[in-house]
Computed example of a mutant assay.
Amino acid sequence: MVEAFMLIQTEVGRAEVVAKQLAALAGVSSSEYVTGPYDVVVRVAAATATELQSVVVPSVQGVTGITRTLTCPIADGVHS
């Protein structure tokens, strides 16, 4: 399993709507709208890095209202 966080900027006033739309997509584990330099943070997952890059990330980027994304692959999880 390959996972990443995607940091997303949206059109003004669209963060909540975009976060809700993203939550329904395949490969999206969680979707939150936040404050700060980014408007939405999603956690995405796929079986392989290729699937993540070729299927999941483009489906997220295709949501109306998104202006910019930054994908941050998770190198290693820390569990308590």
Results as ranks from 00 to 15, higher is better:
residue 5 F to M: 12
residue 26 A to S: 10
residue 19 A to R: 10
residue 18 V to P: 06
residue 8 I to R: 06
residue 27 G to F: 02
residue 13 G to E: 03
residue 1 M to I: 00
residue 72 C to H: 03
residue 36 G to I: 00
residue 29 S to F: 04
residue 60 V to C: 08
residue 20 K to D: 12
residue 21 Q to C: 04
residue 12 V to C: 09
residue 19 A to T: 04
residue 29 S to W: 07
residue 48 T to F: 00
residue 73 P to T: 07
residue 48 T to E: 00
residue 33 Y to K: 08
residue 49 A to D: 08
residue 33 Y to I: 01
residue 65 G to H: 09
residue 18 V to E: 14
residue 17 V to I: 13
residue 28 V to Y: 07
residue 13 G to A: 03
residue 73 P to V: 11
residue 3 E to N: 15
residue 46 A to G: 13
residue 33 Y to Q: 11
residue 76 D to W: 14
residue 70 L to S: 13
residue 18 V to N: 11
residue 75 A to I: 10
residue 53 Q to F: 01
residue 17 V to H: 15
residue 18 V to M: 14
residue 48 T to P: 00
residue 26 A to G: 11
residue 7 L to S: 03
residue 9 Q to T: 12
residue 18 V to L: 13
residue 80 S to V: 14
residue 49 A to M: 13
residue 31 S to D: 06
residue 65 G to C: 09
residue 35 T to M: 12
residue 16 E to A: 15
residue 54 S to T: 14
residue 59 S to C: 10
residue 46 A to I: 11
residue 53 Q to K: 07
residue 42 V to Q: 00
residue 24 A to V: 12
residue 1 M to T: 01
residue 79 H to A: 14
residue 54 S to C: 02
residue 55 V to Y: 11
residue 72 C to G: 00
residue 31 S to E: 02
residue 71 T to C: 04
residue 33 Y to E: 08
residue 80 S to N: 14
residue 6 M to E: 04
residue 46 A to D: 12
residue 43 R to A: 11
residue 45 A to E: 10
residue 40 V to Y: 10
residue 9 Q to M: 04
residue 8 I to C: 03
residue 39 D to P: 02
residue 80 S to E: 08
residue 29 S to P: 00
residue 28 V to D: 05
residue 47 A to S: 10
residue 15 A to W: 00
residue 39 D to R: 07
residue 8 I to E: 02
residue 32 E to N: 12
residue 54 S to D: 11
residue 56 V to G: 08
residue 25 L to N: 13
residue 69 T to P: 02
residue 24 A to T: 12
residue 56 V to N: 07
residue 15 A to G: 04
residue 8 I to D: 03
residue 25 L to C: 15
residue 60 V to I: 05
residue 10 T to G: 05
residue 32 E to V: 04
residue 40 V to L: 10
residue 19 A to V: 11
residue 24 A to D: 11
residue 35 T to Y: 09
residue 71 T to A: 13
residue 41 V to E: 07
residue 17 V to P: 00
residue 48 T to G: 01
residue 64 T to S: 14
residue 37 P to W: 08
residue 2 V to L: 05
residue 52 L to K: 10
residue 10 T to K: 04
residue 55 V to Q: 11
residue 67 T to K: 03
residue 58 P to A: 04
residue 50 T to W: 01
residue 6 M to N: 02
residue 40 V to H: 03
residue 32 E to L: 13
residue 18 V to F: 14
residue 13 G to P: 01
residue 46 A to K: 09
residue 61 Q to T: 02
residue 76 D to V: 13
residue 20 K to E: 15
residue 39 D to H: 09
residue 69 T to V: 10
residue 4 A to V: 05
residue 79 H to Q: 10
residue 19 A to I: 06
residue 66 I to T: 09
residue 52 L to Q: 12
residue 70 L to Y: 06
residue 26 A to N: 05
residue 33 Y to F: 13
residue 40 V to Q: 09
residue 38 Y to F: 08
residue 22 L to F: 04
residue 65 G to T: 08
residue 6 M to V: 15
residue 56 V to K: 08
residue 60 V to F: 09
residue 37 P to D: 11
residue 29 S to D: 11
residue 68 R to G: 01
residue 47 A to D: 11
residue 39 D to I: 05
residue 14 R to D: 06
residue 77 G to C: 03
residue 39 D to Y: 01
residue 25 L to G: 05
residue 51 E to L: 15
residue 18 V to Q: 14
residue 74 I to C: 02
residue 25 L to Y: 08
residue 79 H to C: 07
residue 40 V to K: 07
residue 42 V to W: 01
residue 9 Q to K: 15
residue 43 R to I: 08
residue 57 V to M: 06
residue 61 Q to E: 07
residue 65 G to S: 12
